[in-house]
Design a protein around this nucleic acid. Structure first.
Lengths: 200, 200
DNA sequence: AGTTCACTGAAACGACTGTTTCAGTGAACT
DNA sequence: AGTTCACTGAAACAGTCGTTTCAGTGAACT
């Protein structure tokens, strides 16, 4: 309990990275120290030593997943001037639908729903914070007068809902053509409506 | 292993109902026979006897949740003639946003994502089957020429995605006004587009 | 009365859980 | 050379898990 290295060492991030890859494959729900340690060439003893407890390890894994998520937000948000709400949403969707991102998105969905059921512990606040993160990104692509209105919040909420709803469908059915057409239809309607009001 | 009652007895549905209420409160991820049995006034022995195994119990619980889901579908689908796609979606949303349905929807979300990660076992196919169920309901509210086209499938997929995306947001943030406005905005755009094409 | 049979309490089984205790590594620093 | 200290293997701890074994209930049926 008293033993816990203050700063993340080299070995620690190595193991965290290996554990992260393991979690992407097997999920977090049934995560167990002994199988995990065996798979990444470590031992339960070391994991407990480095992360304090299993809860600490799970928190570190969720934080690691969040780093990936924020990296996407950063690459889409800071790369140049605001691109317009629907354009940004399209770029996000291109990233979401990539088959190689599916393990990460499954893990994300698992952490999301788990934090709904078990609001305390390692999962606390995951769902709420991920919603606000993405909403903030979308807000950055809305023009200034609209951005701060309740109407503006509703529009970016709708865009986020379309993205997440389509993602859920895609993860469950894998039916890329249908889901792709659905999102494109949805964004097209929003785009039409916005251009009719002279909003980017 | 050999003992398993063939037909569901009275006692069995009583216990299943009690276990269902327990699962709505505590979720399925950490479900354990001993605490569950203690809470519903039974014993692990009896649960194993009646449901064959814990896996059988979980399957029964998921089937029970599915009964609730199908009941909603039935009440919205068979009640009169097709009401139009967006009207049907609005009615579904009125049901989804009810605070008293939140435990059921949390359980539903948990089973959904879990079946994405662990495609075998008791959860198998839950996500995919729930998608097709709801899509079929929405299809019943589309007019006949459109219903069987790829465009029609895309539109009802978009409607379902909007509903699910808004539901996820609502479960995480509880921000009813914003989410409500988002869904209304989304459905309004679809409605406008459809009436412009003479589709109900 | 005797048998059958659905049902159940108590206790144990082996496997697994996260965590701790103890005993060491081996490299870095004084 | 001696000490410190980050790190780790082996084993055990107490607890929980799903499941099984055994020994019964008590009502229904022959």
């Amino acid at each position: 309990m008293s033993e816990e290295p203050p700063s993340p060492s080299v070995r620690q991030v190595e193991l965290l990275e290996a554990a992260y890859r393991y979690a992407l494959e097997h999920g977090l729900a049934d995560l167990s120290l002994r199988p995990l340690a065996a798979a990444i060439g470590s031992s339960p003893r070391v994991l407990i030593y480095l992360f304090g407890s299993k809860d600490g390890l799970v928190k570190a894994l969720l934080a690691r997943a969040r780093v990936d998520e924020l990296a996407v937000l950063g690459s889409l948000g800071e790369a140049g001037p605001p691109a317009g709400l629907t354009t940004a949403a399209e770029q996000i969707w291109l990233w979401l639908r990539e088959p190689r991102h599916r393990p990460l998105l499954r893990l994300w969905a698992e952490a999301y729903t788990r934090s709904l059921i078990e609001p305390d512990g390692a999962w606390a606040g995951f769902a709420a914070s991920t919603v606000t993160d993405w909403l903030a990104l979308l807000a950055a692509h809305q023009p200034q007068p609209e951005r701060d209105t309740a109407q503006g919040a509703a529009v970016r909420t709708a865009v986020l809902a379309a993205l997440r709803g389509c993602l859920l469908d895609l993860l469950a059915t894998g039916d890329r053509d249908r889901v792709d057409a659905a999102l494109r239809h949805q964004l097209g309607l929003i785009e039409n409506d916005r251009s009719a009001r002279d909003l980017p």
